[in-house]
Design a protein around this nucleic acid. Structure first.
Length: 935
RNA sequence: GGGCCGGUGGUCUAGGGGUGAUGACGUCGCGCUUACAACGCGAAAAUCGGCGGUUCGAAUCCGCCCCGGCCCA
């Protein structure tokens, strides 16, 4: 009945009273099972309705916490990387929001030029539309339709992660305001002379017919062939040159574009050739032999054909060898041989077909000396995946040298910190070797280039709005540059264009700079470095003080998770199956966020889900139904109330768990401050599961069951709830839905967790004495459990135990019957009797010796007198102690150690040796006699 | 070719000069002990990639080497 009602509420998405003690859910309590699907959607819409995530409109500068989410591409489905980024960034935002800092988590969408155009074309072609025949406007229309569809879907995906984004400030890189920012950026740089047109070697994609930036080119290891081609001597009679020169190349089809053969100036083999000419095979042309220091003597034959139009290095060589032409196009934009230099019979052949044709003709003519397999890296288009054709072409470039230098010093001078720090060097390395940034793309989808050309005189300039006439010749026929801008030319403005730049908006004033820029380490160059350049250039300040780089997650075979490879789990499916909280937690823990590594979905999700289940059940133990406790409403906690529960006479385990909580709160907060999200998650995992649940709750069960009277029961419950509720708040940024659900269960009328106050680290008192005593208690309890497991004592049999304390804290424990009772409970034995220093335990006991004390257990009648294997634990303990003692003694015997080690270390070792020696004696007595031992 | 990162039980991982080297998953015992089998208790399992060096003392610092990965050419 109960479950059913909830399910309906969740499906409908917006219950009237989400926390509802009265209407939403019957007050009896928490369902037995942790079922995230029954409440996650409910809280998402509740948060949204309440407007918790809308960043406050505040005037002027002031404290703020801003994170701009790296905008997903309109291409469609969210990637795993977005889930990871969103999770880390949402965590930081929720944490700061709870601290009361005005917080903005800004979502957006990237138009993603080439990638989107490709996706939409593919989509249209599937529907039978011939995309290449469409006009620019028509294609824009289709893309717009596509965008509207994807936008809704992407938003739903982000929301279903529980990300606390401010959707009222959502930005699309094609919004008119954003377009203005892009235009302003272009015009500013253009007028400063930092944007220019030039003919340069670019990465040409012969399929998409566009230039690509270096970063869009993916080198792929490719098996090719190295062909050795003879370039015959042009004067065969000359001494030593009769055979001609042999040149090695992987691209014989480009030979018609050769302008020279180059050799290293120090290469003895080719000394006689310098300045001479060779015949260019398959043509009637001759080319000179030049010397250039860039030639690698060891590669191939040490002689290189120089093809300036189709190879970057060759182009550089040709430029250096002044009289040589630096341009000789023989391959057209579609990758076909063409032009006057190509013999008629090869013209029009596609490059790979041409390669075959050229090779076979060379072979026929006996000019092919040798061919051998050759593995090398070939640049491929990230977008279309075809091999890149280096090509000379006229493009727009940004001169980034000065901006790069500023970006470099921003990090060097400590204005920007990169976390983890090791990426700093990579960042330097990139900026120290900056190339001009090619920003024009020959596609139709993207930001237009605000440059107009005069049809009459050819003059061109950049304008804010379409010019009426040419300022030079007065011509009225002008046309705009047909190219569009590289997507990254809009992305690099993201931290400030999203806040209204170039306008001087309130948001820009309040929420800029961004507090931390989080992204995957794979786009340090594409994005991070350029945003830093852009912000320094246009606003004169760094865009953010911190860059937080996450690692790259891989599958079990170490391959990057990507849609491409199909090895990336679908975030939505994971959320549906396991819940958003489990997914979030699994992304953070236990694999370190900034390291990345193999992410096995099943295993990760199970681990996270089990942990959250634990939290669920712990809450169920403490508050099976809505507690009637007054004042338990998440308002600032009442220190006096807890003070009374935690005075000197309070139960040891209570004082202990409060103290542990305090340490955990501090650890979580300081780890978050240091961007150690995994560490913070780990601290909570450790505390909730292995301290609060395993030890405190186990020790408190009797009290909670009312066995010590109703007053004790009430105070225990109150203390437990007080610690639990505080921990839920600490956990909220990690698992927002679960903690919201449980928080409302605990106090139906309380503040929502999403806006609850982040606990101060010293809210509950530290108690080092209690911590030391519980450490001893745990050691003794574990000893008893070990012994009992070894003696094969059945669970329902409760033997008697005798303990003789050896350490100070243990001694204290034995003074207090209540603490002994806790030990009895935790180790499931019948009774514990303390033994004085000279007392002996009764006959028939088995013993174990720990640092805290000696443990004796009497197997009840009827159980095995002695386990078949004997007393392994005791024997192993002896071995270990003996080994440790020997080590310690050795050090103490070493005069240099005694001489040079700090006194503190020396004393420690000395004390340790003393303790070990005593323990060894005890162990030997137990082993030798198996008899109860007196002094 | 240049640069960066990592190598710790079967797997993943903590620790960054003095530890009895964390913890998780998995494995093996024993248990459905009324918060939790999505669990509990116990056990087995690592000479911290190799070789040198610095040091009274190295998983930890330095050098070289080997292996894996990433980035830029």
């Amino acid at each position: 009945m109960t479950l059913k009602a909830q399910d309906t509420a969740a499906r409908e998405g917006s219950p009237q009273t989400p926390g509802g003690g009265e209407a939403g859910r019957p007050a009896e309590g928490l369902p037995k099972r942790y079922d995230p699907s029954s409440f996650e959607a409910k809280w998402q819409s509740y948060w949204e309705e309440q407007g918790y995530f809308r960043a406050p409109d505040l005037p002027g500068r002031g404290p703020h916490w801003t994170i701009v989410f790296p905008p997903p591409n309109v291409t469609g489905i969210l990637t795993f990387g977005h889930s990871l980024q969103g999770t880390t960034q949402d965590l930081l935002c929720r944490w700061q929001r709870m601290k009361g800092v005005p917080t903005l988590f800004l979502p957006g969408l990237d138009h993603a030029g080439v990638a989107t155009q490709m996706a939409v074309r593919k989509h249209l072609e599937k529907q039978g539309v011939n995309a290449s025949a469409l006009s620019r406007d028509a294609l824009h229309g289709h893309i717009e339709t596509w965008r509207k569809e994807k936008e809704v879907y992407i938003r739903r995906q982000l929301t279903s992660h529980g990300f606390s984004m401010d959707w009222s400030r959502y930005v699309y890189t094609m919004d008119p305001r954003y377009c203005e920012a892009v235009r302003t950026a272009f015009l500013t740089l253009y007028r400063q002379g930092r944007i220019y047109r030039a003919e340069r070697m670019v990465n040409w994609d012969p399929k998409l017919l566009t230039a690509l930036s270096d970063l869009e080119v993916i080198p792929k290891e490719t098996r090719g062939t190295l062909w050795y081609i003879r370039y015959p001597s042009s004067d065969p009679d000359a001494a030593g040159r009769g055979e001609g020169l042999v040149v090695a190349t992987t691209r014989p089809e480009t030979m018609f574009g050769d302008v020279a053969v180059a050799v290293h100036p120090d290469d003895e083999r080719y000394k006689p050739w310098a300045g001479k000419e060779v015949q260019l095979p398959l043509t009637d042309r001759k080319v000179p032999v030049v010397t250039d220091p860039a030639i690698d003597l060891t590669f191939g034959t040490g002689a290189l054909k120089v093809t300036p139009s189709h190879d970057r290095a060759d182009h550089d060589i040709a430029l250096r060898q002044k009289p040589l032409p630096s341009k000789r196009d023989t391959i057209d934009e579609r990758g076909r041989l063409s032009g006057e230099f190509v013999p008629e019979r090869f013209r029009g052949l596609e490059r790979f077909a041409a390669r075959k044709a050229v090779v076979s003709e060379l072979r026929e003519k006996g000019l092919l000396v040798r061919e051998e397999p050759h593995v090398h890296n070939v640049g491929h288009s990230e977008r279309s995946e075809v091999p890149i054709e280096p090509r000379l072409s006229t493009q727009w470039f940004v001169d980034t040298s000065q901006m790069g230098a500023r970006a470099l010093s921003a990090v060097r001078d400590g204005d920007i910190h990169i976390v983890p720090e090791r990426w700093v060097k990579t960042y330097y390395n990139f900026l120290e070797n900056l190339e001009p940034w090619c920003i024009s793309r020959q596609v139709v989808w993207g930001h237009e280039i605000p440059v107009w050309y005069c049809d009459a005189c050819g003059a061109y300039d950049a304008y804010e709005a379409p010019p009426k006439r040419c300022p030079k010749c007065g011509g009225e026929e002008l046309h705009q540059d047909p190219d569009v801008l590289d997507t990254w030319f809009s992305s690099w403005l993201w931290p400030f264009a999203t806040l209204g730049w170039p306008g001087r908006t309130k948001d820009l004033e309040r929420y800029f700079p961004v507090s931390v820029l989080g992204t995957g380490s794979d786009i340090v160059f594409f994005w991070v470095a350029r945003m830093i350049m852009g912000s320094l250039q246009f606003l004169d300040v760094p865009p953010f003080p911190y860059v937080y780089l996450t690692g790259i997650l891989t599958d079990r075979q170490g391959r990057k998770l990507s849609k491409h490879l199909g090895n990336s789990p679908d975030p939505l499916e994971l959320i549906e199956q396991w819940g958003a909280d489990a997914f979030r937690f699994a992304l953070l823990f236990p694999i370190p966020v900034e390291e990345g590594g193999a992410w096995d979905p099943q295993r990760m999700m199970e681990g996270a889900r089990n942990f959250l289940t634990k939290v669920w059940n712990l809450t169920r133990l403490l508050a099976p139904s809505v507690p009637a406790e007054p004042g338990n409403d998440r308002s600032p906690p009442d220190h006096r109330a807890e003070g009374a529960l935690l005075d000197a006479g309070a139960p040891l385990m209570d004082r202990w768990i409060a103290s542990r909580w305090s340490r955990t709160a501090e650890e979580v907060d300081s780890r978050l401050t240091a961007f150690d999200l995994t560490g913070a998650a780990g601290a909570l995992h450790q505390f909730l599961w292995h301290e609060m649940a395993d030890w405190w709750a186990e020790s408190a069960k009797d009290r909670l069951a009312g066995r010590d009277g109703p007053k004790t029961e009430a105070s225990t419950r109150r203390l437990g709830l007080s610690v639990l509720e505080r921990t839920l708040r600490l956990l909220h940024p990690f698992a927002p839905h679960l903690t919201e659900e449980l928080g409302h269960h605990l106090s139906p009328k309380g503040t929502a967790m999403a806006v609850a106050r982040w606990p101060a680290r010293d809210e509950l008192p530290r108690d080092p004495v209690a911590e030391a005593e519980v450490a001893a208690l745990q050691e003794l309890v574990r000893g008893i459990r070990t012994l009992r497991a070894e003696l094969r004592i059945p669970p329902d049999v409760q033997p008697e135990a005798y303990l003789r304390p050896r350490s100070g804290p243990a001694l204290e424990l034995f003074r207090r019957p209540a603490d002994l009772a806790v030990m009895v409970q935790l180790s499931r034995i019948g009774s514990i009797a303390p033994l004085g220093p000279s007392e002996s335990p009764p006959e028939g006991c088995r013993a174990l010796v720990t640092a805290s004390g000696e443990i004796f257990l009497r197997p009840p009648k009827g159980t095995a007198e002695r386990p078949p294997e004997g007393l392994q634990a005791l024997r192993k303990e002896r071995e270990l102690v003996a080994r440790l003692l020997e080590k310690a003694d050795q050090r103490l015997k070493d005069p240099t150690f005694v001489d040079r080690a700090p006194p503190k270390v020396r004393d420690e070792v000395f004390a340790k040796a003393k303790e070990l020696r005593e323990r060894l004696t005890l162990l030997d007595q137990h082993l030798a006699g198996e008899a109860p031992v007196g002094p």
